[in-house]
């Protein structure tokens, strides 16, 4: 019942999110030949003072068009689109999960149903989780089709791995927002907290010396580029003993936030 209601509430937003992701993806892929030519001629990106932008510039203007294209996809599909639109969608959906129930005075009605609180949380969470993760896979797979039209290869395995990491990263934000949504009485407060966190994290990311401490370091070009090029294996993604294991850390953070949300909901009073 609750999951069905949640899905009906989020499905339009999920569709809009999918369309936005796809619209962000198609032009940058279809315009690739011209962009690659421009990037080859321009030295601007490679001479930028900001280290990660310089690496991006070097990556997307690589002499091998195939390597440059994979780096371009890492930047555009993942570093830009899912970090921007995916995180925004997760925050938008998660914000209202419980705070909106409080605002609409339906929180007490919901808690008084003969359903356990862990089940309430799960039935509200998983439709949102699907809504924010499935479009990432859908758009990634559509990118394979667009790449074929350009006669370039976008390998499915690495693409699936990168999509999985992007989905995990978005899930982490959804779980964080859900936790805050259980704790806060007003949706605007949830949005303010997550917005403030995102701004601080972006600020940290843009400061070279402290960049490793930013959440966005877990989902930037330096992470997605090697995955799409096949230089980072699934084991290195998931096993912290054999690589950075960022995906595992992100999933653990998502699980931690979900656990905090569950704890808060168990203690919540109408």
């Amino acid at each position: 019942m609750i999951a069905g209601k949640t899905w009906r509430e989020v499905r339009v937003m999920a569709l809009a999110y999918l369309l936005i992701l796809e619209l962000l993806c198609v032009p940058v892929l279809l315009l690739w030949p011209e962009i690659y030519g421009d990037l080859q001629r321009s030295t601007l990106m490679r001479n930028l003072g900001i280290d990660f932008l310089k690496r991006i510039g070097e990556g997307v203007s690589n002499k091998s068009e195939q390597v440059a294209y994979l780096n371009w996809c890492a930047v555009m599909l993942f570093f830009r689109s899912t970090n921007l639109v995916g995180v925004a969608a997760a925050v938008l959906l998660g914000t209202g999960l419980f705070a909106r129930e409080r605002e609409a005075q339906t929180f007490e009605f919901l808690l008084a149903r003969p359903v356990s609180r862990p089940r309430i949380l799960w039935q509200k969470f998983w439709p949102c989780a699907l809504a924010v993760t499935l479009p990432i896979y859908a758009v990634s797979w559509s990118a394979v089709y667009w790449s074929h039209r350009l006669e370039l290869e976008l390998p499915l395995g690495p693409l699936l791995l990168a999509s999985t990491h992007a989905a995990a990263f978005v899930l982490m934000f959804l779980a964080l927002t859900t936790w805050l949504s259980v704790r806060c009485r007003v949706q605007a407060h949830v949005a303010a907290w997550v917005g403030a966190l995102a701004v601080v994290q972006i600020g940290i990311y843009l400061t070279q010396r402290i960049r490793p401490y930013s959440l966005f370091r877990l989902a930037d070009f330096d992470w997605y580029g090697p995955i799409l090029s096949g230089n980072t294996t699934a084991r290195q993604m998931f096993d912290p003993l054999h690589g950075p294991g960022f995906t595992t850390w992100v999933l653990l953070a998502a699980a931690l936030c979900y656990g905090l949300a569950l704890r808060a909901l168990r203690r919540a009073e109408p």
Partner: peptide
């Protein structure tokens, strides 16, 4: 949960979904 399965509770604040 066992109580709520055999109980119907009407909250003091009218809790109905506007949408």
């Amino acid at each position: 949960l066992a109580i709520r399965r055999r109980t119907s509770y009407l909250p003091g604040e009218t809790g109905v979904y506007l949408q």
